[in-house]
């Protein structure tokens, strides 16, 4: 018998918490993107756990789409990081305090 769904759900909640903490405390834009990836993976793990427990394929299909959206998000986000770095020579989000180029 497989381990109960609760174990995986708690693990996903912890992973989400770690990702959220990193997002709130780290200042490098690249590390913040990695933390967003951690949070997305936590949600994916939750979806797959629910899909397994409720025996429903929709959870896995939605994880598939989350992965696609994550890939698109990383592409655009890193493009923004690169163009900000060209202008500022830094990836620290604290130095982007004013809204002018």
């Amino acid at each position: 018998m497989n381990v109960p769904a609760a174990w995986y759900l708690v693990l996903a909640a912890l992973l989400f918490g770690i990702g959220a903490f990193g997002l709130l405390t780290r200042r490098s834009a690249l590390i913040m993107f990695m933390c967003i990836e951690l949070m997305l993976n936590a949600v994916n793990l939750t979806f797959v756990t629910f899909a397994r427990t409720l025996s429903d394929i929709s959870g896995q299909a939605i994880v598939f789409f989350v992965m696609v959206v994550a890939a698109a998000e990383v592409t655009v986000g890193l493009g923004i990081v690169v163009s900000v770095f060209r202008r500022r020579s830094s990836t620290s989000v604290d130095e982007l305090s004013e809204m002018k180029g």
């Binding site: 708690v10 397994r52 429903d56």
Partner: peptide, 18 residues
């Protein structure tokens, strides 16, 4: 919240069965 609500509740195999 999850522990209070018995972790996983809901209809089983709504769209397609695993």
């Amino acid at each position: 919240l999850m522990a209070r609500s018995h972790w996983v509740t809901g209809a089983v195999s709504v769209s397609s069965k695993l």
